[in-house]
């Protein structure tokens, strides 16, 4: 079965093309481009990706409007059925606003927009999205965000840590995130949200290819199931 993915485009998304190209190149499969106003998603998806950008101009709160757009009901429904869902940057914000991931992403502690390569630690190398990495591996992935300051109450943070749901952690101060959390998984492990952009680090011309393994993990996971 060829790999089939959907990349959602909201008004104001700007990493949707990069995301689609990354998935296409790494999987050799098909990527459906889905508009936020569509009420349905194709069947048989192996991955749904919510890209970065500034959906709805970040009005109200980053990701707040997009999380209530028609297509998100279908995303929530498919996530509930176990379809892998990846949210990057604004996509992560949308996933928290939609209630698919705990916590919230607030204005960076330093107020400024942060746009640079950051070092991350792979905290959980056994998840659907990270199994191709080594446990504790240090990887370099770029960030570009204004609202990436991850917040959740202490009880939630303890639970995330205890359940191995912190996928990635910043190895350097980045945005003031609680416990330097850069990416979190949902309880079932089929939804990942992360502020860094793996789709911007998939070939040497990007300055590195540490992002490839995230997509390869999803591919391998599906091959292992097949």
């Amino acid at each position: 079965m060829p790999f089939t993915a959907a990349v959602i485009t909201f008004p104001g998304s700007n990493c949707d093309r990069d995301m689609a190209v990354a998935i296409e190149e790494i999987s050799g499969g098909t990527v459906h481009r889905v508009w936020h106003g569509d009420a349905a998603l194709p069947d048989g998806l192996d991955l749904i990706a919510l890209p970065g950008g500034f959906s709805y101009g970040d009005y109200l709160r980053s990701g707040a409007m997009a999380a209530r757009s028609p297509v998100m009901q279908a995303v929530v429904e498919q996530a509930g059925r176990g379809v892998p869902v990846l949210g990057v940057c604004n996509g992560f914000q949308v996933l928290t606003e939609a209630g698919l991931l705990p916590g919230a992403l607030m204005r960076n502690a330093g107020i400024r927009f942060v746009c640079r390569d950051v070092k991350l630690k792979v905290e959980n190398a056994s998840s659907l999205f990270t199994s191709a990495y080594l446990p504790g591996q240090t990887i370099t992935i770029p960030v570009a965000h204004h609202d990436g300051n991850y917040y959740a109450d202490a009880e939630t943070l303890d639970r995330l840590e205890g359940e191995g749901r912190v996928a990635f952690r910043y190895l350097e101060a980045c945005n003031g995130s609680q416990r330097d959390i850069a990416g979190v998984l949902n309880e079932k492990g089929n939804v990942l949200g992360m502020m860094p952009h793996p789709e911007r680090m998939i070939e040497p011309a990007h300055g590195g290819s540490d992002g490839r393994k995230l997509f390869e993990s999803v591919l391998h996971g599906l091959n292992a199931l097949a």
């Binding site: 709160r61 919230a104 607030m106």
Partner: peptide
């Protein structure tokens, strides 16, 4: 609760 405020924060 559904839109205007984010009850997490």
């Amino acid at each position: 609760r559904k839109l205007l405020a984010n009850m997490v924060i």
